[in-house]
Design a protein around this nucleic acid. Structure first.
Lengths: 208, 208
DNA sequence: CCTACTATTGATCACACGATCAATAAGTTG
DNA sequence: CAACTTATTGATCGTGTGATCAATAGTAGG
């Protein structure tokens, strides 16, 4: 398949082409995973010679790393905007959990899982993964600390709780990625777990 | 490095050589990850021609899948033997969590994470991953159900709770794999989370 | 001891990867 | 309109992967 006899790509400004390549890399990663972000894969997507991608991105490891960063930081920004307007820390946390566990972000979950694996052979990516994880941790920690200040939550180590929350979320999503069979109920019972972590009463974290 | 001028491998019986190859694949996976389980990688480890490995394992995807299965099922068996003698479900659960989160099994965690990623391109592996996940779920579910029967735990869906527990464990371990910086405290607060899930009082799951 | 069997090997193929470079052609500038 | 700049390309290299196959060399059986 894919009989596409490319003639010659239109000449574009470096800024334009560079952005086009970054976008193509992001799209490829979301559709086929980070492993598909290759010289030839990205080039084929925008119908351009592989050498052109190499011209703008002399180091593929770096492109994979920045593509990961673009996807994951966009997700964080999106979730932040969704959660921040909410009045109480409890509500922010409940919506955060519901959003991240609703199963609508499997493409991003794949990127996370592949980044953990690929990071072992791509140091630039590994560094980026740590940075993005830390950004997420900071965000969640902020919610937890606000909850403590408001007297809603009870814990003595907000950072540790934030890490635990993120670990649980990522683990449940990664699992759901593989056992697609009955992946409907991920997050159904995590509310009780979080209540236990934060000293809340049973059912205190309901949203619906 | 690795100046090893191999002369000729000693002739062995098919059963012996076959087992040797399986062991080599397992060792390679534990030391360098599932991605390193290649024709040449396994062959080099036992100082044999790549073609010999191909002779015994005509399909590399299958070897990767079975290698994953060997590693993970051995881990399950090991944990089962450690936990089963304990008298109460609460203790079994507490020791299970402590054991799986003590940070001494990062090599196996790498295998899990890489299997989730690789499973997208290796259907045999994906099937094996689902099987092993189900075996783990069955095991944990057994502990939970025993706890319910003994009046120690309180939940109406043991299977779902088992999935959640495993998801949390795998997520925390995967995280610790990447942020090796301060990976000491994984599992420090998961006890409270589990207490919340199972309707236990605070501190009911302490071991030490 | 000789023959049949087969474990083992080197050579080789086809493919995909990242990378490099001289040549070309589309713009831009003087 | 000519000269220059540079975006784009095809060709090619080196490496790593799985796979195949005829040739070789141990081993067992008659």
């Amino acid at each position: 398949m894919s009989r596409a006899p490319r003639k010659k790509a239109a000449r574009k400004s470096p800024a334009e082409r560079s952005a086009e390549i970054a976008d193509a890399a992001r799209d490829v990663a979301l559709e086929h995973g980070l492993y598909a972000v290759t010289l030839r894969g990205v080039a084929a997507r925008i119908d351009v010679a592989p050498a052109l991608v190499a011209h703008y991105q002399p180091d593929m490891h770096a492109l994979v790393a920045s593509t990961f960063g673009v996807i994951v930081s966009a997700e964080l920004e999106e979730v932040e905007e969704l959660v921040e307007p909410l009045p109480s820390p409890s509500e922010r946390l409940a919506v955060l959990l519901d959003t991240l566990l609703d199963g609508s972000r499997d493409d991003v979950t794949v990127v996370w899982v592949e980044a953990w694996a690929l990071g072992r052979r791509n140091e630039a990516l590994a560094a980026r993964v740590r940075d993005e994880m830390d950004a997420w941790r900071t965000f969640v920690q902020g919610i937890v600390e606000a909850g403590i200040a408001a007297g809603e939550f009870e814990t003595d180590d907000a950072a540790s709780v934030a890490w635990q929350l993120l670990g649980m979320i990522d683990g449940l999503n990664a699992h759901a990625l593989v056992r697609w069979e009955d992946a409907g109920d991920r997050g159904s019972r995590i509310g009780h777990a979080v209540e236990g972590m934060l000293g809340l009463g049973r059912g205190a974290l309901a949203t619906r």
